[in-house]
């Protein structure tokens, strides 16, 4: 007779308790993070509810709460963020392609560039604001407090993130694909353009949208760059918008929330809800693109 088989666990009770305790700790960590977010969100929506509606969109910023809205801030945000995307995408993706596909990794200057980009990604955005103030708003470019100043500065803010996420997307394309193309006589550029970039496109667009959505929420550098709170007109349609004064949603929130009058806090909360909705829309688009074009190699 062999010994009877038993599946009763031999793990001591102490270990089981430790396991359960650790699991509980992790649940708590997730709960605190999500809970805080949820409370903030519900509170903001509740506070802003009276003002959420078409009047908020129809009216321009004003010093009188009854007539205050955010129309010029919505269009200002769209212009600033749109231009930022237009400038940062080609620059960022181009840099990423150079670093991943062309640069020789054993050269000192390649490592210097990489180190710089990683450090720039960690620089607080207010520092970019000072840079933009000194070199773009004033100084050599002297563009003043205009939309193009804001966009160029925000481009500098998001560029490192766009580069880093694009590089990751390019690195996810298997080397065997590049070898296959090169072995058929394709040049490096043909390989990149016809095989690598299409393969990396979903990853690049996801990362870039997330980077650009950061620009949508930035207020610190724009406060330095003369984003004005009381702009009672929309940026003109067409190229003239580049040289137009502007306001954006985060500046508007800052302005309304720091006003002493209680009515303005309601408008600030409503503006936050609009800003959050736009951010969710962008991030949703990023997720949709990722799921739609996700590749299996």
């Amino acid at each position: 007779m062999t010994a009877p088989v038993s599946l009763v666990g031999t793990v001591g009770i102490g270990r089981r308790i430790r396991d359960a305790a650790f699991r509980g700790l992790l649940y708590a960590a997730v709960g605190v993070a999500l809970g805080t977010l949820l409370v903030l969100l519900v509170d903001t929506v509740n506070q802003g509810r009276p003002k959420i509606g078409m009047d908020l969109y129809r009216n321009f910023p004003s010093a009188r709460p009854a007539r205050a809205g955010i129309q010029s801030a919505i269009y200002g945000s769209l212009w600033v963020v749109g231009l930022t995307a237009v400038m940062s995408l080609p620059l960022g993706v181009g840099t990423a392609v150079y670093l991943e596909e062309y640069a020789r990794r054993d050269r000192w200057y390649t490592r210097l560039i990489e180190l710089n980009i990683q450090n720039l990604a960690a620089v607080p955005s207010i520092v970019y604001g000072i840079l933009g103030l000194a070199f773009i708003a004033r100084g050599p470019l002297g563009w003043g407090p205009t939309i193009r100043t804001a966009s160029l500065t925000l481009t500098l803010v998001v560029l490192p993130t766009v580069i880093i996420s694009s590089r990751e997307a390019l690195r996810a394309v298997p080397p065997s694909l590049r070898q296959g193309a090169v072995a058929l006589g394709a040049t490096t550029w043909q390989t990149v353009w016809r095989q690598v970039l299409p393969g990396a496109a979903p990853g690049i667009s996801t990362g870039s949208i997330l980077a650009v959505s950061r620009a949508l929420g930035e207020s610190a550098p724009l406060l330095l760059l003369g984003g004005l709170a009381f702009i009672s007109f929309n940026p003109p349609a067409g190229p003239a918008a580049l040289e137009s004064p502007y306001t954006v949603l985060p500046i508007q929130v800052f302005q309304y929330a720091t006003d002493a009058r209680q009515e303005f806090h309601v408008i600030a909360a409503a503006t936050i809800v609009v800003l959050l909705a736009m951010l969710l829309l962008l991030n949703g688009a990023a997720i949709a693109i990722r799921n739609r074009y996700q590749r299996k190699w």
Partner: peptide, 10 residues
């Protein structure tokens, strides 16, 4: 050239 692991383009 033909490689060790089939590597068709996607």
């Amino acid at each position: 050239m033909v490689f060790q692991k089939p590597n068709p383009f996607p």
